[in-house]
Amino acid sequence: MDNRQPPAQSLLKHLPESVLSAAREPAPVHLWHPAFSGELDMHIARDGTWYYEGGPVTRLALAQLFSGILRLEEDGRYYLVTPVEKWGIRVDDVPFVAVRLEVEGAGEQQRLRFFTSLEHEVVADAAHPISVSVDPESGEPSPYVLLRDNLRALIHRNVFYELVERATEHQVDGQARLGVWSDGNFFPIDGEVAEA
């Protein structure tokens, strides 16, 4: 008889109590360097839904807890990390989706506050930039905002339309670019790359 716990339960068992009590706050995963434990049957879909063993994680608090121990490493892979375990997971695009926008102020003084489907929030600023990549084949834009460390949130299409409505032209490296202001920073959203 196999008495081992499923990896997801094992992960939760090895989290410090301070992390468990603050599920929406990220854990100090940059301080933890356990050996690789294996692949976990968990993935995050492009729409931000977390799946474990083929089924969606329906409890928000549980998805928030897992998101707090998520780390993107230099190999381009995502891992769930505790002080003693490190499990690889699959992520279709990026792990978060910004589903709501609040705007404070106007013009160059406005602040754009994004909220994710897991109730994280971030103000776009120099440390949390907005970026847009464009699929070369379809021409579809993929807008992102940096949430924390090197973890980004895909900006939902409806939220991106709100940004487009607020967009203004501004000179960037001698080129007129279409973008938005937030916290005194201008972020191009036209998906073009300025020529050097």
Rank of each mutant, 00 (worst) to 15 (best):
Ser138Thr: 15
Phe160Ser: 02
Phe96Lys: 00
Arg157Thr: 10
Ala22Met: 04
Pro28Val: 03
Ser37Lys: 12
Asn150Ile: 10
Pro28Asp: 06
Ala45Cys: 11
Asp190Met: 06
Gly191Leu: 05
Asp47His: 10
Ser182Met: 08
Asp2Tyr: 10
Leu65Glu: 08
Asp190Arg: 02
Arg4Leu: 14
Gly48Tyr: 01
Gly179Asn: 08
Thr116Ser: 14
Arg166His: 02
Arg166Trp: 03
Pro34Trp: 07
Gly55Leu: 13
Gln175His: 09
Trp181Leu: 09
Val180Met: 11
Val159Thr: 01
Glu192Met: 14
Val159Asn: 00
Tyr79Ser: 07
Arg157Lys: 12
Val159Glu: 01
Ala35Thr: 15
Ala98Phe: 05
Arg113Asn: 12
Asp47Thr: 00
Val159Phe: 01
Asp149His: 12
Ile130Gln: 03
Glu104Ser: 14
Pro56Ala: 09
Tyr161Asn: 10
Tyr51Pro: 04
Asp190Ala: 02
Ile189Asn: 08
Thr116Val: 09
Asp190Ser: 04
Pro95Gln: 00
Arg4His: 13
Trp181Ser: 05
Leu62His: 08
Gly184Ala: 10
Arg148Pro: 02
Val57Cys: 14
Val159Gly: 00
Ala153Glu: 11
Val81Tyr: 05
Ala23Gly: 00
Glu102Tyr: 06
Glu162Gly: 04
Leu65Pro: 12
Glu119Gly: 00
Glu169Lys: 01
Arg157Cys: 01
Ile89His: 02
Ala196Asp: 14
Arg4Ile: 03
Asn3Tyr: 15
Thr58Gly: 05
Trp32Cys: 10
Leu163Cys: 07
Pro129His: 06
Pro141Thr: 09
Gly76Cys: 11
Ser10Ala: 14
Leu154Cys: 02
Glu74Met: 14
His128Val: 07
Trp32Leu: 05
Tyr79Val: 11
Glu53Cys: 06
Glu121Lys: 11
Gly105Leu: 03
Val99Trp: 07
Glu137Tyr: 13
Ala98Asp: 06
Trp87Leu: 08
Ala124Ile: 12
Val103Pro: 07
Val91Trp: 08
Glu140Tyr: 08
His170Pro: 09
His30Asn: 13
Glu169Met: 03
Asp93Tyr: 06
Arg71Lys: 14
Asp2Leu: 13
Phe66Thr: 02
Gly139Ala: 06
Gln9Ala: 13
Trp87Lys: 03
Ala23Phe: 14
Glu74Ile: 15
Pro7Cys: 10
Met42Cys: 15
Leu154Ile: 01
Ser131Met: 11
